[in-house]
Amino acid sequence: MTTAITRTVKVASEEVDANTKRGGDLRVTLSPKTVGCTSGFGGVLTLEPGDHITEHYHPYSEEFLHIVEGTLTMSLDGEQITLGPGDSLLVPIGVRHRLVNTGDSTARGAFHLSPLAPRPELGHVDTEPAQHPAESNPDVGGTP
């Protein structure tokens, strides 16, 4: 039996540590570890011009991405898709993806992944080396 969340839980992005392992500044704000949710996790991302999130895929989860600011290019199994403010993108389960800030200003977005992998360490499969492997934050409750 699962326990339903019966109260509103607000988390400010400044309250959680950044995960920069794959590049950029990823902050998982809503997750099993931060708020006790059970169906997925989400948060916000910031990428400076020229920065990127290294390629990976999710064997159990779809990823939903919404761009708030800046110009980004998402590679989905090698296909390039340009994204700007107001654009949303679905990354299907098992699709390799890599996100690059191709603009000349800071890019910001929000993401959500669902459903959860059976265990957090099974949620992501890297297909290229992490940019900053020592900068992983295992306490964020899931990393995009």
Rank of each mutant, 00 (worst) to 15 (best):
T2W: 06
T2A: 15
T2G: 12
T2S: 15
A4Y: 13
A4Q: 13
R7M: 13
T8K: 09
T8I: 09
V11S: 05
S13K: 13
E14G: 13
V16K: 00
D17L: 07
D17C: 04
A18T: 15
N19F: 06
N19C: 14
T20M: 14
R22F: 08
G23A: 10
G24L: 07
D25K: 13
L26H: 06
P32H: 06
K33E: 15
T38C: 09
T38G: 09
F41I: 08
F41L: 12
F41D: 02
F41W: 11
F41R: 02
V44C: 10
L45R: 01
T46L: 12
L47R: 01
E48T: 08
E48L: 09
P49Q: 05
G50N: 11
H52P: 02
I53H: 05
E55K: 12
H56S: 10
H56V: 08
H58I: 07
P59M: 11
P59A: 11
P59T: 09
S61Y: 03
E62S: 05
E63F: 02
H66F: 13
H66K: 04
L72N: 01
L72C: 14
M74Q: 13
M74D: 01
L76N: 00
L76Q: 03
L76S: 00
L76Y: 00
D77K: 02
G78Y: 10
G78N: 10
E79H: 08
I81N: 05
I81S: 05
T82S: 11
T82A: 11
G84D: 04
G84R: 08
P85C: 10
G86E: 04
D87Q: 09
S88K: 02
L89E: 00
L90F: 11
V91C: 08
V91W: 01
P92K: 06
P92D: 05
V95A: 08
H97S: 00
H97T: 01
R98T: 09
L99G: 00
V100W: 01
V100Y: 01
N101V: 07
T102A: 04
T102W: 01
G103V: 05
D104Q: 13
T106G: 06
A107M: 06
R108M: 03
F111N: 02
H112V: 15
L116W: 04
A117I: 10
A117N: 11
A117P: 09
P118D: 07
P120W: 05
G123Y: 00
G123F: 01
H124Q: 15
D126L: 11
T127M: 10
T127H: 06
A130E: 06
Q131G: 10
H132L: 10
P133W: 10
P133N: 12
E135N: 12
S136P: 05
S136E: 13
P138L: 06
D139K: 09
V140P: 01
G141Q: 07
G141L: 04
G142I: 00
